[in-house]
Design a protein around this nucleic acid. Structure first.
Lengths: 250, 250
DNA sequence: CCAAAAGTGTTCCTAGTACACCCATGT
DNA sequence: ACATGGGTGTACTAGGAACACTTTTGG
């Protein structure tokens, strides 16, 4: 804050960039990690796939100050998917501000990554897919497999870099935190949670060893048994649920 | 990127925030973790301690696009400390954009955390401390002990929140990466590196166990023995150096 | 009966922790 | 001689990895 002129209003004396939020929304379908991409309908990058996002509302200069960055991310997500659930996990990834990342001018994007569990994803699917706004520049939107399809796509702006960063963050976080719970239905079996781990890490995990990891979480009170069993086409499996209270401290 | 009007120049149709970078520069003096704070000379928060930082140069609307965010952080650091060394570790912490974080208007800050080793810090000290620019709104600057002094200070803007986030990030990173090497002189003893760990974690670490951790890093090729011994006032200790090549992959 | 996933047991290895102890040096 | 930090040894424990094995279901 030391780049000051001598007047109180120096904040306004510098050229300013535009600020956007972009959201990397992950979900796991069956055993496949997917990311939500939208197809751009307009220049620049018309026809290219991009991350959902949009401008942060900053308010006018003397009136309201506009919205928080997290709020902007959640709002954009709600507008793209039709979902405004607090159950969607949202975490800031960082700022991407290379001078030439947007051909229209200087635009700094605050990137977020978000996780959608299968149940909530189902409520989108029931409405015929992600909801696009009238007048949006997004011509289409769909879930793209991260491992297979997304690798080959050319994404708009620096969205490839953002997606890679989000994936790296997700993989790092999932080893050490309880993030995987955000990608699983409200009740789940040991095998279902393991499949989410495998989808994110991109490699198989010994079921026996995963079970012991699971049992440790059970001991720690992160999980509890839920009533009922899951019919799996083979031996029925016990179902569990995430104990949300255990996350209050984080 | 879907908040579009229909003209190509819609980027300019929205009110824009100002963008700053703020830098949390850590160093370890003896066995004490310190952070560089500047005292503000002007409103708002005149007289309060704050993180060094300043506005990102975004260029004018038709000319150059201005500087990268990382470049801006490094430039501000150079201007505050007189040091422009690539040896200063710099990592983006995230964006802080609460609507009311700056009383002057909507300002989004991209926060960085940076690490300064004792040798480089010495070159600052030799010049009589951090260098303040002529016409700066920073009236003073100094190293503040994180554990004792900084806890009690009231910081300007949301810099308390940024400092806490930087400290949390540093503590998390130091357990799992080679960050501690950035806070140690070019050659160091086992005990010196341990003291850096202790300063960051805020608690003692068994010397015998730390030595084994150290030896593992030696086996992995992260470290190598350096010529000479360190006179310590007691039994002379072997000195080592960081093998920079081992970091290329990260 | 058979395939397949649920679930159990065992062994090996690495790394963190606690703690006892010896060694070399300056004062 | 002795305090101090350098340096070694040892025992305990938690958790990851590898893999053999039994159990329970649907087909």
């Amino acid at each position: 804050m030391s780049k000051a002129k001598t007047t109180k209003s120096y904040v306004y004396e510098y050229p300013r960039p535009s600020i956007t939020v972009d959201v990397v929304l992950f979900t796991v379908v069956d055993t496949d990690l997917k990311v939500l991409l939208v197809r751009r309908g307009e220049a620049p990058f018309a026809g290219a796939w991009a991350l959902p996002g949009g401008f942060v509302r900053v308010g006018d200069e003397r009136g309201s100050r506009g919205e928080d960055l997290d709020t902007a991310a959640r709002r954009e997500l709600a507008e793209e998917t039709g979902l405004a659930s607090p159950r969607i996990y949202l975490e800031q990834l960082g700022a991407f501000g290379a001078p030439d990342r947007d051909p229209r001018g200087r635009v700094v994007s605050i990137a977020y990554f978000a996780l959608l569990d299968p149940e909530l994803r189902g409520t989108i699917a029931a409405r015929g897919g992600p909801v696009l706004r009238a007048g949006s520049d997004a011509a289409d939107a769909r879930w793209v497999s991260v491992a297979s399809e997304a690798r080959r796509l050319t994404l708009a702006f620096d969205h490839r870099e953002i997606l890679d960063a989000a994936l790296a963050r997700l993989r790092m976080r999932v080893e050490v935190s309880t993030l995987a719970f955000e990608l699983v239905p409200p009740t789940f079996t040991v095998g279902e949670l393991r499949e989410v781990f495998e989808a994110i890490r991109g490699e198989a995990h010994d079921p026996a060893n995963f079970r012991r990891k699971f049992e440790r979480m059970l001991d720690e009170g992160l999980l509890e048994e839920a009533p009922g069993k899951r019919q799996t086409g083979t031996k029925p499996a016990r179902v569990y649920r995430f104990v949300r209270a255990a996350r209050d401290g984080s």
